[in-house]
Design a binder for these strands. Structure first.
Lengths: 279, 279
DNA sequence: AATTGACTCTATTCTTGGAATAGGTCTTAA
DNA sequence: TTAAGACCTATTCCAAGAATAGAGTCAATT
């Protein structure tokens, strides 16, 4: 083995890369063989070219693209190199932040599934305490109970656009709901035209964010949005029956969506609730 | 706009995706339009299919591939979905670890450049204190001073293979060096056949790891490996001249490589040093 | 009814960093 | 001389679209 004139196979073996990789680097101008036989096209490398190969490996480990590595090669002084590496260091910081954010989103989804599993599924009415919540709300022009089945989708998309325009994270969209003001809770004539998302501490200052006070609620769950109105009526009737008083706005809150299970319809599990006061 | 029969353009606009994306999802079986006109091939979507699109967006945000999202769609129960998401959560943990490791490597490179900038460049001899170090060493059969210029490359590649076989991180390869035992420091007949990498705390238990005690060194830097032998002789002469005593093994340590600057040769800056005792 | 402009269709190419393949040429040892 | 093994170029594939070309379709206006 002549160290000053290695074939591509020898060079590849010594440096633990594949032959294809060396050919790629040649094509891309990252590492040209020292000699190319004009007649046969055979590539011959010098052992000292291993240094360049080492460098490419390092840079790849830093997560740089071949194109950027190629740019980097052109630098002829330490300052540029150092600046280049520092820039990449900061970029990685950002990538880590993004990943953590994604993790948080997954955590939120898992939490929702957990809540789903702990709630009664069969239209059972129950009373619960709910702590304070903050919602970012959006008001539509139409009563979504009135519309022929698309009302909910329309309201949701209006809300989504509002979310985007306010630069709120889209992940809030996972915990969406509608609200019916106390004065509109009239049996036989329900009216609701506001949708909301639950927000956490970071966004409480927004002018469209409203605080929902903590309190006791009478609640009920379902998986079929088309029966919401009927269930709401049933809940109101139950309040009368139990001799309770309505203490605030009606809320319909999506616990979780199962968009994976049904292809062409929004498959969700939601909870409706009305705050109550004991007479 | 008929919400039950949206054209691809309307559907795209409502959901803030591009038309190409919808066509792709159709081809890949992620979301088929509700109706396809047999004559014209026109796709028509139902507004309720937005839910599926939302789900795909979420999953993409989690860093999942379309293929995996498609697999996920097939799940028909919450348990599988939850398990799937948890798995991805753990994967992201790993990705974050990898990124942090890469950051650490960049930090190491930057540190090396910093050391480079603080060292005298013009063959100046200086005396310094160096703390304890740990090295993973590899012994070759040949004296690398003897060989016709390739000795260093060969030794390095043997070391690299040893590193890999011992499963040590390759990043150590950035801080490489050679060692000449005290008994072999004979002017006019230098002998060195050991290379090493500096290792940190994690790998001190290895049987090939040796401790280099702290102490005073007489040192000198250079950027041309071919003059190492000559510089070593000069350093030894200086010890005589200053009436000092050699207190241990000679070390040649690479401070940093500049593989980017020269294409076909290992361009590096190194420091040679001999531990000394004052008589 | 015809025109026009906007929309949609399929098909192809491009991006990254190689891996894999086919079909042909070269080198080297027996 | 022959055969194995190494090498060559060229092409295709992966993922998730973006961008393009060229052709067909829809809906509103004249």
């Amino acid at each position: 083995m002549e160290l000053g004139k290695l074939t591509i196979g020898q060079m590849a073996k010594i440096n633990a890369v594949t032959i294809q990789t060396l050919r790629l680097y040649d094509r891309e101008g990252l590492l040209k063989p020292l000699i190319v036989d004009e007649n046969t096209g055979y590539r011959y490398y010098h052992i000292n070219q291993s240094a360049r190969l080492d460098m490419i490996q390092y840079m790849k480990d830093y997560g740089l693209t071949l194109r950027k590595i190629k740019d980097h090669i052109k630098f002829k002084n330490v300052e540029d190199t150092v600046e280049f590496l520092k820039k990449r260091y900061v970029e990685i910081d950002q990538e880590i932040q993004d990943l953590k954010y994604n993790q948080k989103e997954i955590g939120r989804a898992l939490e929702n599934y957990q809540r789903y599993e702990n709630l009664p599924k069969n239209h059972q009415i129950f009373i619960e305490y709910v702590g304070e919540r903050y919602i970012f709300k959006h008001q539509s022009e139409k009563n979504y109970f009135d519309q022929d089945g698309y009302g909910y989708e329309l309201l949701l998309h209006e809300l989504k656009k509002a979310l985007i325009s306010m630069k709120l994270p889209l992940t809030y969209y996972r915990n969406v709901g509608t609200i019916m003001r106390k004065e509109n809770i009239k049996p036989g004539n329900l009216l609701s035209n506001e949708a909301f998302v639950l927000v956490d501490d970071n966004f409480r200052d927004n002018e469209d964010v409203e605080r929902i006070p903590p309190g006791m609620y009478i609640s009920m769950c379902s998986g079929d949005l088309y029966e919401e109105m009927e269930l709401a009526e049933r809940l109101i009737a139950e309040i009368e029956k139990r001799d309770l008083e309505i203490a605030g706005d009606y809320i319909c809150e999506v616990i979780t969506e199962f968009p994976a299970f049904k292809e062409n319809v929004r498959d969700m599990f939601f909870k409706i609730q009305i705050p109550i006061r004991f007479k």
